[in-house]
Amino acid sequence: MDSKNQVPDWLLNSGEIGMCPCACIGKRKKGSFLEKTINGIAKLLKEVIFFEDIAFQKGFLQKLDPRIKVISLVVLILTSTLIHNVLILTILYLISCILAKISHVSLRLYFKRIWLITPLFTGVAVLPSIFNFVRPGTTLISLIDFGHQVHLGPLIFPSVLTITSQGVSGAILLIVRVGVTVSLAFLFTTTTRWANLLKALRILLLPKIFITTLEMCYRYIFILLNITTDMFVARKSRTFSKTSSKEGRHFVSNAIGSLFGKSYALSEEIYGAMLSRGYKGEPVIMNRFRFTLLDFQWLLGVIICVLVAFGGEIILG
């Protein structure tokens, strides 16, 4: 029997989606903008739900009083910004990794969320500082010898363009510092429920209008995402052929206008519903915070850690 007759025609068709993960069989097609938008929204909602689940875990940081967590976060971030030693900052980050582990936060997620993004954006910002025309110092690598000073508008470049050791060390320090501070903020906010975090900020005398705006924005984002998903799913369910780029742009522009109109009408309805339920300008959260022995021990540990960090920087110079 001919082996070719045993293979379905759809599998032999090179225009179909490849069935092999390496795409060696068939031809993969790019998804439409509708599918990409729907998948992007679904991924965002999935991540939000996942982080909410982390906040409900019974880990170490989850057991702390949100007020103490906010205070300790501010103290640790200020400490990280004032420390000028990369080794001490690295030790602080390792301590935060231990806290993430005992708080049921995946170390892979903790690392990937910060260090796959922070070095890129921070590195672009500090890239000019590694050259001698921004930060003169000891030459590390010589790049271009112009033979004379080069004037480019208000900028004056030296005769030899080099990378200085002072510039590189300063750039590394800034990248590590930003990574540590963002990691701490990510860790503390991930292990704290959003409502408790806002209440803690309000108790610590943050302006009421600031808290209300944050709360409304957080809740309203999901409503807008739900409306957007409905619009794109409805469009996709009525599309039977490949959509051209022109039609796609036309639909997106119409969808943006429609979304603004729906969001404005919805905001009026939400505000009316809040007033009918007794809203007087400040949201009420029923959770009560309690200061426990664990909170006292944590606060004492943070103070000791800060003192050790500054003492270590004085010793190491």
Score class of each variant (00 low, 15 high):
Arg113Met: 11
Phe131Trp: 08
Val168Ser: 12
Lys112Pro: 04
His151Phe: 03
Ala125Tyr: 12
Ile144Leu: 03
Ala171Gly: 11
His148Met: 07
Ser169Met: 15
Val124Tyr: 06
Leu173Asp: 04
Thr164Ser: 13
Thr181Trp: 01
Arg135Leu: 06
Arg135Trp: 01
Leu127Lys: 02
Ile156Met: 08
Ala125Arg: 08
Ile141Asn: 00
Gly179Lys: 00
His148Lys: 15
Ile156Ser: 00
Arg177Asn: 07
Leu155Glu: 01
Val176Trp: 08
Asn132Ile: 07
Arg177Glu: 05
Pro136Trp: 00
Gln166Pro: 02
Ile114Leu: 10
Pro158Arg: 14
Leu143Asp: 08
Val126Pro: 11
Gly123Asn: 08
Val180Glu: 08
Ala171Tyr: 05
Thr138Ser: 15
Phe133Glu: 11
Gln149Val: 09
Ala171Glu: 05
Phe121Arg: 10
Leu127Tyr: 11
Phe146Asp: 05
Thr139Gly: 05
Val126Leu: 06
Val180Leu: 05
Leu127Ala: 13
Gln166Met: 07
Gly179Glu: 04
Leu152Pro: 06
Leu140Ile: 04
Arg135Ser: 09
Val126Ala: 07
Leu120Cys: 04
Ile141Met: 08
Ile163Arg: 01
Gly179Phe: 00
Ser142Met: 12
Ile144Asn: 08
Leu161Lys: 10
Ile156Ala: 05
Ile117Glu: 07
Arg177Met: 04
Leu161Met: 12
Ile130Met: 02
Ser129Met: 06
Leu174Arg: 01
Arg177Gly: 03
Ile172Val: 15
Val168Asn: 14
Gly153His: 00
Thr139Pro: 14
Ile117Asn: 14
Arg113Lys: 11
Leu127Ile: 06
Thr139Asp: 12
Leu140Glu: 04
Ile175Cys: 01
Thr164His: 06
Thr138Arg: 03
Leu155Met: 10
Gly167Glu: 01
Gly170Pro: 03
Phe121Glu: 09
Gly147Trp: 02
Ile175His: 11
Ala171Ser: 12
Pro128Asn: 02
Leu161Gly: 13
Leu173Gln: 09
Ser129Cys: 03
Ile175Thr: 04
Val182Asp: 11
Thr122Ala: 09
Ser142Ile: 05
Ser159Glu: 13
Val180Pro: 05
Leu152Asn: 02
Val124Asn: 05
Ser165Phe: 03
Leu120Asp: 03
Ser159Met: 10
Ile172Ser: 10
Arg177Lys: 13
Pro119Ile: 09
Ile175Asn: 00
Ile163Cys: 06
Ile114Glu: 11
His148Val: 10
Pro154Met: 02
Ile172Gln: 10
Thr139Ala: 06
Val176Ile: 13
Phe133Val: 02
Lys112Met: 12
Thr162Asn: 13
Phe157Gln: 12
Val168Lys: 14
Leu152Ala: 14
Ile144Asp: 08
His151Ser: 14
Ser159Ile: 09
Ile141Asp: 06
Thr122Lys: 00
Ile144Ser: 02
Val168Arg: 07
Ile163Tyr: 00
